[in-house]
């Protein structure tokens, strides 16, 4: 099922921060994991992911670094900072309140 962009746009930073909670990852890895965990609901393009990562990096929630791959190429990894972890908790709480309220309204009277 295709999800409206406007529904997704407000949740992208929450999703990305959640992905990084389990460990440092690189871009393609995050996209494939997101798709797998969400049962293909969230199919984010790489091009869309990187501005989000840049924005999170600018805010200090994420830190990027380069590492050599097996093939000798440089790969960019992203790491969740302490500030990012705190932000994740904050956004997760907000999401739970928000989604709970939406569900309540949707099921009201049924």
């Amino acid at each position: 099922m295709k999800i409206d962009k406007s529904l997704l746009s407000g949740s992208t930073s929450l999703l990305v921060l959640s992905l990084l909670k389990s460990g440092d990852k690189y871009g393609y890895e995050m996209i494939t994991l997101l798709e797998a965990v969400s049962n293909e609901v969230f199919q984010m393009k790489e091009g869309t992911l990187y501005p989000i990562l840049h924005n999170l990096e600018k805010k200090g929630y994420v830190k990027a670094y380069n590492q050599q791959t097996d093939k000798g190429r440089s790969r960019r990894y992203y790491h969740l900072t302490d500030k990012g972890a705190a932000q994740l908790i904050e956004e997760k709480t907000q999401w739970e309140v928000f989604s709970g309220a939406v569900n309540t309204v949707l099921h009201c009277g049924t």
Binding site: Y26, G27, Y28, E46, Y50, T69, K71, R73, R75
Partner: peptide
Amino acid sequence: EFSDHFEDCRDA
């Protein structure tokens, strides 16, 4: 950066 990410994807 975009070139590197592209090559990451391509390798995968």
